[in-house]
Design a protein around this nucleic acid. Structure first.
Lengths: 230, 230
DNA sequence: CAGTGGTCTAGACCACGGC
DNA sequence: CCGTGGTCTAGACCACTGT
């Protein structure tokens, strides 16, 4: 029955879901009301029970109905407020302090996750970056030193094998690098040496799988970060 | 044919998915290899094509295979290896396994940061949510229990006072809830009790400012998460 | 008990891709 | 062209819930 509706490019389940949603919106199906059985709905809409079930599954996901096994489906709420989150502007909206807080938290997560997931080659890469930082510092090339520091943090994120962390840390460090306030930070040999020390400790802590040491070195890193507070 | 397999309590699609996953892990199906057609797989496993399709849908969501219309399905990667490309899309682009990894890392960061920043009222709110979880569990209302669990994780993120973490954890838990139906989480009283235990330990660890305990309870939480493919 | 949702089947038709 | 995945159907059996 219900000969193939060839015209519509929309799938049957979607059409059914929208029809039911319309009835909910119009008040024809008030909250708490019990829906007809799946078999009845199939007959009413001229589709198979499978199509009806898929439509109901969608409405369940959006929280519009609630289904009870052996009983029936009930209207849960008149209009599901659908969450349409977009993380595009998420990072962009952060101010300086929030960005620093975010970096601290995310790099802590990266390092702790890297403890469990880093491969030997990951660790070697971290060693190489620390060595590179050391060289830049010896040549008083603070600018390159800073850039390599960012590379290190991105490498740690990579070692965590967590795609979202890689994306976020990359985005945050890049934004960090691009901000002019970073250029205002005055690196002296003493500050540089201290910074290197903290990063060496961080890498060592990851290799030693020392959770507490990772936590402390990360806290240290940001607590002493050369930036205006407030 | 293939009369009702009454033995297994597991659904056919899951059995098929696990069988295919085993072949992938064993190397019998190397990366890039093309799977037999859905019709052939149905014959091979003695199930209907629908069951095969549902199994393949799960493997697609977890990123193990890639399906091309009119062509076939191909092995995308052997296991939790990462996909390189794109930084756009971010959260939206994550599959289930990556989403779980991201949640673990971010919630670890939230909890650890909350150790330093949570106020007394934050802690009281966490207690309240744990108590609520306890009640839902006593009533065997696993669905509401799960929802409250997500609330708890969001509350912990709030307690970290880190805007980006709040946004991300909210987004991830919401997306997770929408995918829950595919995970076919089978909550039993034993699993529920264990889960509650882990969450209670987490909140206690935050209050005690016990870094190691936070790390361990978070690891525990996700290590034992009821989901296909560890 | 009868009715409901949960699952699975066998078969059909379509649109698309490669040969 | 043929085979593939994408969709839908009609019907079946099961486990559960309400009365």
């Amino acid at each position: 029955m219900a000969s193939q509706v060839s015209s519509g490019r929309q799938r049957k389940p979607e059409l059914v879901a929208e029809a039911l949603l319309a009835k909910i919106r119009s008040g024809e199906l008030p909250v708490g009301e019990r829906l007809p059985s799946e078999r009845d709905l199939a007959g009413e809409f001229g589709v198979s029970r499978n199509a009806v079930r898929e439509a109901l599954a969608v409405l369940q996901l959006s929280g519009n109905i609630e289904t009870r096994l052996g009983d029936g489906s009930y209207i849960a709420r008149p209009e599901g407020t659908v969450r349409d989150e977009n993380d595009a502007g998420l990072v962009a909206a952060l101010n300086i302090n929030e960005l620093l807080q975010a970096r601290e938290a995310l790099e802590l997560a990266s390092a702790l996750t890297a403890i469990r997931r880093a491969t030997r080659s990951d660790l070697l890469k971290l060693d190489a970056l620390v060595a590179e930082m050391e060289e830049h510092l010896e040549q008083d090339d603070y600018k390159t030193y800073l850039a390599t520091t960012m590379d290190l943090h991105r490498a740690i994120a990579s070692a965590s094998r967590t795609p979202l962390l890689v994306s976020l840390v990359t985005e945050l460090t890049t934004k960090h690098q691009n901000h002019e306030w970073l250029l205002h930070t005055r690196y002296t040999p003493a500050i540089g040496a201290y910074s290197l020390d903290v990063h060496q400790a961080l890498v060592k802590a990851i290799r030693d799988k020392d959770v507490v040491a990772v936590y402390e070195s990360t806290s240290q890193h940001y607590h002493d970060y050369p930036v205006l507070q407030g």
